[in-house]
């Protein structure tokens, strides 16, 4: 997507345009799991809806699997799960999936087989023949995911796939996403749950206020300012620790101490620990968690575009 812009019309009598996407640039590499992160209202859903053709963009250019949006051919190779999917509630899960299969031009037999297989995969075999009007939120989410996979898509676009699911369901979706990745598929999903992104994504893009503020490999984004090392030591008394590192943040973890040491003085600190008969357990670069990054990045007044270029 290049320079995508979108405004919603708001208000009834005097309609005003409310810009939601303000020149969004985004590239999802094939074969990767790509997370679209951002607080509520950042424009994630809007972005995905434009991609699948539910909304028209006001300006910009977008391609899906290398093809322009207007082209219908890519739709055979893409799966989409909307946010809080609303599925026909007068159908059962199996009927819904078979109907979707029919839209893809699958034969009756292929549809049946695929529906059974997918229901199994999303753990809905037992509720396959219950009308969806009686289904719980979690069940709908599972069927929603299954319907996105009917055509064995190369690119799967998921809008908040974990929302409304219990821990079991989330685990299942995570596993499914990783299975898709192993099968060489591309998964593009939006979420505001950072731990999901952290465990699943190869790359992420951070959306804020209709723009991408950071994008890239998770490791790169998070390691971008490793300035401190975490040194874990043991067999030292409080006094010893105080003399070794008088100004450094240190935390007592029972037998052990955790010291945050600037990179430059790591050698010095290690020498001191050894000469005090202490034991060095580990020295690790202090990567910030995605959450820390997110909070800093989304803080108001933060210089915009800090990660661009």
């Amino acid at each position: 997507m290049r320079g995508v812009r979108k405004s919603y019309r708001v208000g009834h009598i005097r309609q005003k345009l409310r810009p939601v996407l303000k020149g969004l640039d985004l590239t999802v590499p094939r074969g990767e799991v790509f997370g679209c992160l951002g607080p509520n209202g950042a424009g994630k859903t809007t972005t995905l809806k434009i991609l699948v053709g539910l909304l028209r963009m006001d300006a910009g250019e977008a391609r899906v699997l290398g093809r322009p949006l207007g082209d219908r051919a890519w739709r055979y190779r893409v799966g989409y799960l909307p946010e809080n999917p609303y599925l026909y509630d007068y159908l059962t899960a199996r009927e819904y999936l078979e109907y979707v299969g029919r839209l893809f031009g699958m034969s009756a037999e292929a549809r049946k087989r695929r529906a059974t297989e997918l229901l199994e995969r999303v753990g809905m075999s037992r509720a396959a023949d219950v009308a969806l009007r009686r289904a719980s939120k979690g069940m709908l989410q599972r069927v929603g995911l299954a319907q996105a996979l009917v055509n064995d898509p190369e690119l799967v676009i998921l809008d908040e796939p974990m929302s409304g699911l219990d821990p079991l369901g989330r685990h299942l979706i995570r596993r499914l996403i990783l299975e898709l990745k192993d099968a060489g598929k591309t998964v593009f999903f939006s979420t505001h749950i950072l731990s999901d992104a952290e465990t699943l994504c190869d790359r992420v893009a951070l959306l804020r206020d209709g723009q991408v503020t950071a994008a890239g490999r998770l490791a790169d984004i998070l390691a971008i300012d490793v300035t401190h090392m975490e040194v874990l030591v043991s067999a030292l008394s409080v006094e010893q620790v105080k003399t070794i590192a008088p100004e450094l943040p240190a935390r007592n973890l029972g037998e052990r101490w955790r010291l945050e040491v600037p990179e430059a003085s790591v050698g010095q600190v290690l020498d001191k620990v050894r000469s005090a008969q202490g034991r060095v357990l580990s020295v690790l670069p202090m990567r910030q968690s995605l959450e820390e990054f997110f909070v800093r990045e989304m803080a108001p007044g933060q210089a915009e575009g800090a990660w661009e270029g």
Partner: peptide, 10 residues
Amino acid sequence: RSLFPLLAKP
């Protein structure tokens, strides 16, 4: 929103 999933299909 029942059309959302379907309109992304062919």
